[in-house]
Write a protein that binds this DNA or RNA. Structure first.
Lengths: 252, 252
DNA sequence: GGACATCGAACTGCATGCAATTCGGGCGCT
DNA sequence: AGCGCCCGAATTGCATGCAGTTCGATGTCC
């Protein structure tokens, strides 16, 4: 039997929403790297809308944490710190445990088939680029969330999964997606079997290992802002004698 | 010792942010009831800004789930369904268990004092209106989240707590806040003692009982839209013979 | 009395324009 | 060369204006 009566949870077809979706996808596929500039004019021109709309879209994405917005400054793709990335994964683990807890033993045959089809797609994409693999893996989790029919859960899982995606492009070493795919299959099996405890454990382990593979160590440097890197050392500077830093390594 | 090095996590001082904060507070204090209309013009005039800014603020609040935005229609304060309210509480329980798990045994004396001071304030407000009590109780949880120094966790806990607040004004019977205050004190004590398992259990029970006190039963009706109420019955109507409803009970 | 059509007011969707701020390259100085 | 300054171009912050849609009161007919 289905987990709950179905209902549509799709996003509106506003121009704003269209731009949001496009940017979101570009970001998680790493077409837009963390730190990439997103000027309102350029976005507006690219999508055939006015700056007002582009601006609104950036506001939405900033609310989701995918974009960083500072007053009077060009918006940039978010560059989460290592700690923020770890926090995001911790939250994600709890949320997705909740997802599979609600879903265990309550999926229809059609839903299980849909999940399997998705993992098949992941399998086929193994030869392609990392970006596509990562996107598909993320979408598997979002697909699961959708099946709870809880719009709020869908929103939070999606957001936090996107954020995790973002961090992968910052801190990840070239990783193998194969074991992740197998873990997806195991989760589907446990869901179908209805073993609630088992599937929660599987999901926990799955996300934890993804996080550990990705967030190898607090080795930022790459893509980090100089000021952030030096922040821990700032306390040692007496405030009346501020060190003027030479302008090197300033990412444009 | 402190849980983590402190950092500021306050919101920007944009005009948009100011309006967001004001509306958020008005909503959770029930000055604005669910379903209340929020025309862009009126907001702009009230806050001394243009419609563009008011519109942007509404977009942000919609992203947080506090406001409902439908194309070409006046924005309204969100009216969550009973099921959505239950979902929000379920998510909240997981998130706040994570909060206290991270915090157990890691609070400074100053932080514990701050928490106690807050609960004292809750105590003093017991004679006042329900709205203020609810707001203070909610802010206790947000204060806890802040102490994790995880901006992401703060954001999610805040959002979901506000949403829960919103549902209280919809489905809650006149409730007693006293036991909730005692539970807050118990949580502080367990945090100070560093009993991780105990505090997670306490938080779980606390939120669950708040939810159960509030969400007494699937008894919508009040403040619900007629169409939503009748949605479950819609399946029984053949689509070529749509029943035209008389225009009653249309909330303005 | 109650359902329906109609029309003006109200409101939203969006683009554009102007002021204020930031960015970045070139110039002069050491 | 290296560093700081300055100024024009680029960019954001915000208000306003116009077109299209919705809302609701009124009048009309049954």
């Amino acid at each position: 039997m289905p987990a709950r009566a179905s209902s549509k949870t799709s996003e509106a077809s506003d121009k704003v929403s269209v731009i949001c979706r496009a940017l979101r996808r570009a970001i998680i596929e790493q077409a837009l790297e963390p730190g990439a500039k997103l000027p309102e004019d350029a976005l507006g021109e690219r999508f055939g809308v006015s700056r007002t709309i582009a601006r609104h879209a950036l506001g939405q994405l900033a609310a989701e944490g995918l974009v960083e917005l500072r007053r009077n400054r060009i918006a940039v793709v978010a560059t989460p710190s290592w700690q923020e990335a770890r926090d995001a994964f911790d939250i994600r683990i709890e949320l997705e445990r909740l997802v599979v807890r609600q879903l265990a033993g309550k999926l229809t045959r059609a839903q299980i088939a849909e999940l399997n089809a998705h993992v098949d797609a992941e399998d086929r994409a193994r030869g392609g680029t990392d970006a596509v693999s990562i996107r598909l893996a993320t979408e598997f989790h979002i697909l699961l969330a959708h099946m709870t029919n809880s719009p709020i859960l869908v929103r939070y899982v999606s957001e936090v999964a996107y954020r995790c995606c973002l961090t992968l492009s910052l801190y990840s070493r070239p990783h193998s997606t194969e074991c992740a795919i197998n873990e997806h299959r195991a989760i589907i099996a446990a869901l179908a079997k209805g073993d609630e405890a088992k599937v929660m454990e599987l999901m926990h382990h799955h996300l934890d290992s993804v996080a550990n593979r990705a967030l190898v160590a607090p080795t930022p440097q790459r893509g980090r802002d100089l000021l952030d890197i030096l922040a821990p050392y700032a306390d040692e500077v007496t405030s009346d004698r501020v060190v003027k830093l030479p302008k090197i390594a300033r990412r444009g």
